[in-house]
Amino acid sequence: MTRLTLSTCCMALTLAAASTSAIAELQTKTVEYQVDGTSFTGYLAWDDEFTGKRPGVLVVHEWWGHNEFARNQAERLAGEGYTAFALDMYGSGTLADHPDDAQKFMQAASSDMDVVRARFMAAKTLLQQHETVDASKIAAQGYCFGGAVVLNMARLGVDLDGVVSFHGALGSPIKAEAGKVIPRVQVYTGGADKMVPSEQVAALAREMQDASVDLTLVSFPGVLHSFTNPGADKVAEEFGMPIGYDAAAAERSWNGTMAFYREIFAD
């Protein structure tokens, strides 16, 4: 079991603003925090154009680690009126630029589900404590590895309003149980994704149906893994990976997610 150091706020999150910037009304802050003695680096984004408390959204990175793509997603969410926190599941400075390293980092981070949950919950608490956030309205979205993380948090019964998986792994040793899954679930996957074959997609649909989970699953025909990431084509060419960006699928999945959030966060 991973132990999370406690404080008067129920967990010790040592916040150190490494950098703060303001672009027009967009506010961003790099945040260092501690979980069980390990340092992590996340990224908060919110827009001062929106007033009052607002829902918060956690962003869980791809298998590469906490990178610019994850931060960009947080900024996009801020532009939509949410406060977003692009969390770190690997540890400060752990970032891959080769698939072999990404695989190693992902396997290490996924090997103990208690650790995964502790790291996710630390980030959730940090987001909920931000002055702009309505702590009762929290969702999580993840990409690739991050998609698997948010689905597993739903399976484990974490209190969230919704989770969204973009080209995430759908299989898991953890299975959803009726009455345990709290959030509504959306999944966007590529119909030609060799990393998430049709058997996984079908198995997830059966699993969630058997557990009476509110699931929306969208499969884009002919679309490859990593379809939301504009950098996927370069990676595919460099390493010969079966991945690729798809602008239409990226836009449709984003628009669907924004509609989902408007619905689940409606007063």
Rank of each mutant, 00 (worst) to 15 (best):
E263S: 04
S21G: 11
E25P: 10
F227M: 13
L156H: 05
G231Q: 03
C10Q: 11
V133W: 04
C9D: 08
V223G: 00
Y188G: 09
M1R: 07
F120D: 03
S219G: 12
T38N: 10
M11W: 04
E251M: 14
L160Q: 01
D47Y: 01
Y143W: 03
G79F: 05
M208I: 12
A178R: 12
T125K: 14
A74E: 01
A192E: 10
E131W: 08
R54P: 08
G190K: 15
S253W: 13
A74I: 02
A78L: 01
M153L: 04
S253Y: 12
V196A: 05
A18Y: 11
S219M: 13
A118F: 12
I182E: 00
D47K: 00
A78V: 00
M153D: 05
A24L: 02
T257N: 04
V187G: 15
A74Q: 04
E263K: 06
A211E: 03
L15Q: 07
A192V: 11
K104D: 13
A247S: 14
D97L: 10
T38H: 04
K53Q: 09
G142T: 03
Y90A: 05
G157L: 14
L58P: 12
S110R: 06
Q128W: 11
T216H: 14
V218T: 15
F265L: 14
P173Q: 07
V196W: 04
H167S: 13
E177K: 11
V164K: 00
L77Q: 04
A232V: 13
D210C: 04
D36E: 07
A169Y: 12
S111E: 12
V201F: 13
A211K: 09
E177M: 09
Q129M: 15
V158W: 09
P183W: 07
S136D: 06
G65T: 13
S226K: 11
L77R: 07
N152F: 04
L126S: 06
D48S: 02
G91A: 05
A109C: 00
L77M: 06
V164W: 05
I23D: 15
L13I: 15
L13W: 08
S198M: 15
T257L: 02
A259F: 06
Y82V: 14
V116C: 13
P99G: 05
F69K: 01
N229K: 09
V35F: 13
G168P: 01
E131Y: 15
E68G: 14
S110H: 09
E131D: 14
Y43Q: 07
D48N: 03
S7K: 04
R76D: 04
L44N: 09
A205C: 06
A22D: 01
S198Q: 13
A17F: 00
C9W: 12
L204T: 10
V133T: 00
D193E: 05
G157Y: 06
S110N: 07
G146W: 15
R76S: 05
N255T: 10
A140W: 03
V158Y: 11
V218R: 09
A17N: 00
A102N: 13
Q73L: 15
F69G: 00
A16Y: 07
R3T: 14
A266F: 14
T38S: 08
A192W: 11
Q209V: 06
G190Q: 14
L87N: 06
P99F: 10
D134R: 08
A140P: 01
R119P: 12
S39I: 15
V187N: 09
